[in-house]
């Protein structure tokens, strides 16, 4: 396990999740089969595939026949029977690379996604991850293998934040690639046209997916706590810059942000989408708790 992985599974956070997990497991074990059966009936199909060996894979799972045929290492993968297929969509655009104090939105999002994947995989459900900016960076389809977490983490770590945001279009694209219904978890700051974002989310809903939106915002984005005259430069669009006195616009700014988040919340609610506005100062367990509350 690398240092980065340690970040994502901070013991403090994990301790919090662990407690939640115990409580969740008690709920799951009591209600899981009925709920899962009813929700995922007829989709239990065994699936086997090869994938290239990546560091951390167990040696015993190497397909030696394939090595003889292709002179390359392949791993034989087996699809466990599962009831839930969760797609974790993580926004890696440049705007996510912002931290007013401490953790960036990107790191927070990755931690959140990794934690969720961990939880999902621990529950024998299938978890996959899609990272994107204005295009899809990595697409790891959901699988219910316990050691699949490493691949998910690898995809999250593989690339840092960068590029522009185009959440709406990406959601449409991902929706086109998801063939089977499941749970779509979007982790993003949603700094895009609200209409486009909502259009994409509606598409998931239209295809029968459950959708949870973790709207990540830095505390500074919520409150604009700066003083003095400041030249604000956009993280994604280099030409977008503005001089402002935060004291003068703070109140209006907060209203604008509040309007935006309220609208997103309302639209999500109208489309039966679970919407969670999360400040990066919020402890991770609370964010995970909101997922568990959805599961419950």
């Amino acid at each position: 396990m690398t240092n980065d992985e340690k970040n994502y599974f901070d013991p403090k956070v994990l301790a919090g999740i662990s407690n939640l997990y115990l409580r969740a497991r008690w709920v799951v074990e009591g209600m899981m089969s009925g709920v899962h059966r009813s929700r995922s009936k007829g989709f239990s199909v065994e699936f086997e595939e090869h994938r290239e060996y990546s560091p951390g894979d167990e040696i015993r799972r190497i397909d030696w026949k394939a090595l003889g045929k292709f002179d390359r290492y392949f791993i034989k993968e087996y699809e466990d029977e599962t009831n839930l297929r969760a797609y974790l969509l993580v926004d890696t655009s440049g705007s996510m690379d912002y931290a007013s104090d401490g953790i960036t939105k990107f790191d927070y999002g990755c931690t959140l996604a990794a934690s969720l994947a961990y939880l999902i995989l621990r529950q024998q459900d299938a978890a996959g991850v899609v990272t994107f900016s204005d295009h899809i960076e990595a697409f790891i389809p959901p699988k219910a293998k316990r050691d699949y977490l490493l691949q998910i983490l690898h995809a999250l770590e593989n690339r840092g934040p960068g590029g522009e945001t185009n959440v709406g279009r990406i959601l449409e694209e991902i929706a086109g690639q998801i063939k089977r219904r499941g749970l779509v978890v979007l982790v993003s700051d949603l700094l895009d046209e609200p209409e486009k974002i909502l259009k994409g989310l509606r598409l998931f809903r239209f295809k029968g997916n459950d959708v949870i939106v973790f709207h990540l915002l830095d505390p500074a984005e919520l409150s604009l706590p700066f003083d003095g005259n400041i030249l604000f430069e956009d993280l994604e669009e280099l030409n977008l810059r503005v001089v402002a006195d935060p004291r003068a616009i703070r109140k209006t700014y907060r209203e604008v942000v509040e309007e935006f988040t309220s609208r997103m919340r309302q639209e999500c609610h109208d489309n039966i989408i679970d919407y969670q506005l999360i400040s990066t100062s919020t402890p991770l367990d609370r964010a995970l708790a909101s997922y568990l509350s959805w599961r419950g």
């Binding site: 440049g94 705007s95 996510m96 912002y98 939105k105 700051d189 700094l191 915002l217 830095d218 500074a220 984005e221 604009l224 700066f226 003095g228 005259n229 400041i230 030249l231 604000f232 430069e233 956009d234 993280l235 994604e236 669009e237 977008l240 810059r241 503005v242 001089v243 402002a244 003068a248 616009i249 209006t252 700014y253 209203e255 604008v256 942000v257 935006f260």
Partner: peptide
């Protein structure tokens, strides 16, 4: 001027337009 790279510049612009 203090320079700050900020993600939500569009909100600032919107606020300024209003006031």
């Amino acid at each position: 001027l203090k320079r700050i790279r900020f993600p939500a510049v569009r909100f600032i612009l919107l606020s300024q337009k209003r006031i």
